[in-house]
């Protein structure tokens, strides 16, 4: 039995999400292969050979794979999948886009966002915004899985010595063309893999007010996030959203500032190791999950916290 992991990468290197997905594959057991699909992604393929526990890297390099368009990548996966018992990808926006398309073409009922492996055919996944955990058993010959990366500790990016095998990409589907990308530039760590996250909510009151959080994030080396309310209000970009339908994070420290703690937000951060809440409403639901709560005006308290950190 061999398992295929679809790599999340940036052409030059492998993303942390891939390492968590390899960890999930290792829990299932079997020989682990990694597919690096992209254009001019030799660096990523090389990096993938060094991932602990990986025995082979399949490298598909073609212009039509460059932007990871679902039609082209799913066709590639389907062509390879027949040799595997399991095909796994991280539940990133790429993984969520491509995997169900591949699963349907394989006539397999995908298992989305697993957080635990019980046996090679049985997995645990959150439902109802994480308010329930379902244990499900698949009867499909090829199991197609997306992995919630916060559920698995990343394997080491070093130590492996896999071989690279080139694979041919199917021709461009002609259905979809890439137009452009607006990337939110940031010097800060990536939200989903940061050790510390500083998030703001509706209580910030404006996009301008998020500047108040920057010294705190800078001091802690933290990524910045936001609640859906803050994103919907246009304070910050959409990819900052933490929650059921945004990013799922589980950092060592999550600092929720001016966030009331709606169910859908809690679904995205309640597995954080330590949660701090700063809110003026002492009845706010966020305090029911916070390890440390600070009640008061965030516009006064946040600078005070920064000052204390500088001491």
């Amino acid at each position: 039995m061999a398992l295929l992991v679809i790599a999340e990468h940036d052409g030059a290197g492998i993303k942390q999400a891939t390492l968590c997905t390899v960890a999930a594959a290792a829990k299932i057991g079997g020989e682990i292969h990694v597919l690096v699909a992209g254009h001019n992604a030799a660096g990523a393929a090389q990096a993938a050979t060094r991932i602990a526990g990986v025995s082979k890297v399949l490298h598909a390099d073609a212009p039509q794979l460059g932007e990871f368009l679902a039609e082209n990548v799913a066709a590639l996966i389907v062509g390879l999948a027949k040799s595997y018992s399991h095909v796994l990808a991280p539940a990133t926006s790429n993984g969520k886009d491509v995997m169900p398309r591949a699963a349907a073409l394989l006539d397999s009922q995908q298992i989305s966002e697993i957080v635990s492996v019980e046996s090679p055919d049985t997995f645990v996944r959150p439902i109802y915004a994480g308010n329930a955990l379902a244990t499900v058993q698949s009867s499909d010959a090829i199991k197609v899985i997306t992995v919630r990366t916060t559920g698995f500790d990343a394997v080491s990016a070093e130590g492996g010595s896999a071989v690279i095998e080139s694979v041919v990409a199917p021709a461009d589907s002609g259905l979809s063309t890439f137009v452009g990308r607006e990337v939110s530039k940031s010097e800060r760590p990536e939200l989903t893999s940061a050790r510390i996250v500083v998030s703001g909510g509706r209580g910030m009151g404006s996009g301008e007010a998020f500047k108040l959080l920057e010294p705190l994030a800078d001091k802690l080396g933290a990524a910045m996030g936001a609640s859906r309310a803050a994103v919907d209000a246009g304070y910050v970009p959409n990819d900052w959203q933490v929650g059921q339908t945004g990013k799922i994070v589980a950092p060592d420290l999550y600092i929720a500032i001016g966030i009331s703690g709606a169910i859908q937000h809690l679904a995205g951060m309640k597995d954080s190791k330590v949660i701090v809440a700063i809110n003026k409403d002492e009845e706010a639901p966020i305090f029911q999950v916070a390890d440390y709560g600070l009640v008061g005006d965030l516009f006064q308290l946040v600078p005070q916290v920064v000052e204390e950190l500088n001491k």
Binding site: A134, V136, Q137, D140, V289, L294, Q304
Partner: peptide, 27 residues
């Protein structure tokens, strides 16, 4: 259905912690 649900459980509840007095106490 292709997936059989074997069981559904409630996730372990997170316990509420404590309120702290001020920024110094928090840090």
């Amino acid at each position: 259905p292709r997936l059989k649900t074997l069981k559904v459980v409630e996730p372990s509840k997170r316990k509420a912690g404590a309120k702290v007095a001020d920024a110094a106490a928090l840090v």
